[in-house]
Design a protein around this nucleic acid. Sequence first.
DNA 1: CAGATGAAATCGTAGGACGATATTGACGGC
DNA 2: GCCGTCAATATCGTCCTACGATTTCATCTG
Lengths: 220, 220
Amino acid sequence: MNAPATIGTTEKVADAIRSGIRTGQFVPGQHLVEAELTLRLGISRSSLREALRHLSGDGIVAIHRYRGAHINRLTRREVRDLLEVLEQLVRLAARLGAASGHANRSLMDAALHAARRHDEDGDHRSYIAVRQAFYDCLFEVAGNRELPRVTPLRRADLFRAQIRPYQTRAQQDSHTEGYRAIAQTVNDGNVEAAEAAVAALFAQTHAMVDELPDVAFDVD
Amino acid sequence: MNAPATIGTTEKVADAIRSGIRTGQFVPGQHLVEAELTLRLGISRSSLREALRHLSGDGIVAIHRYRGAHINRLTRREVRDLLEVLEQLVRLAARLGAASGHANRSLMDAALHAARRHDEDGDHRSYIAVRQAFYDCLFEVAGNRELPRVTPLRRADLFRAQIRPYQTRAQQDSHTEGYRAIAQTVNDGNVEAAEAAVAALFAQTHAMVDELPDVAFDVD
DNA sequence: CAGATGAAATCGTAGGACGATATTGACGGC
DNA sequence: GCCGTCAATATCGTCCTACGATTTCATCTG
């Protein structure tokens, strides 16, 4: 009922590019030539352009008139701004999720179990998948349907892709541990602890951003 | 330098629809037929479809496969969710603006002066213009460039358009007074008071939503 | 080597074509 | 008279071609 019926070409293309960013197939800063992409994806230019327009709305690609589209590459400042906004929204989600002792705790648990299992693989794709599952679940528990629409998770994927080469395994583990802590406190219905857990996770991420080399970011 | 160079047809069309919503030319729930709009706006279908895709990303229009696009009409619940998210983001903006005693106080003052002057006209368009100017200014003072990208102000315009017939003049005045209070506290650099002013404004809006008749909203 | 210049590449927009699907209204059975 | 079936129509989704506009880049000239 709630399903958006059939899926269109535009969405498929947008998903292809989004997941291409997560898998490393597309790199932040990369120039996207329409003619090449239409061949590669086997679609028409109209569909591709609609998809690019869609992605530009999410801040994933930037379109410059007569110069084409390219995968956005964030500056250090843009990352800080992004994290600042993201933290508020995740805090809201955690607060709402913890406040209304919702039934969907199993979902959250599932996401976390998946986290641990994939954690052992040490694969980056699984790390991203865990992140996605975690947020999907968190938003569902929060019960606010505006939250997933507004939260710039796709934009954060750009950040993840940029810092990938400079992130240690320990940092990843520490990050997923942050997810676990949030899930724990939300499931316990402990509003204050949940907000604190979110704050801790983002404080850690901010610290990481400060330590990363300039080369990981776009110039201002 | 930072200007997005020349403006394209797609953006013009999107702006036309957005401002059409504010002026009442387009009504939430209205069906948008591509053939009609291409004639009315004097553009090709390609450009129109790109614009519609862009707007759908902002949640302003909804596109259903083979059934076309229509201006979104929010349910009461969607409005509540929207306000909940919006409040967090505006709070962040107010906090940031108040914290860093930025120089752009004149801008904020200008927006508020315009508010009072237009207030005397009692025109709805001016009310919307004031709102836009206020938020533009607030975001600039906050200095977080992710904030204007993420904040669902365009979606809130839908809400404004829906409740327009049921909103009293006193409520409008009270709302602009809320803006004034936020601007005041932000300019004073009083972080706590600024957050409190935002909370008060949204509490008032939530109360209004509770009192509005069902007919003002879409069915669930 | 700096700047002008022209060709090539690429984008922006228009417009047509055709299959796919939803909507609508007519039709007949109950 | 009401309800399900079915065809006609409207509209959308996608592809295609075309051509002007603009940038980009290699080349030429001084």
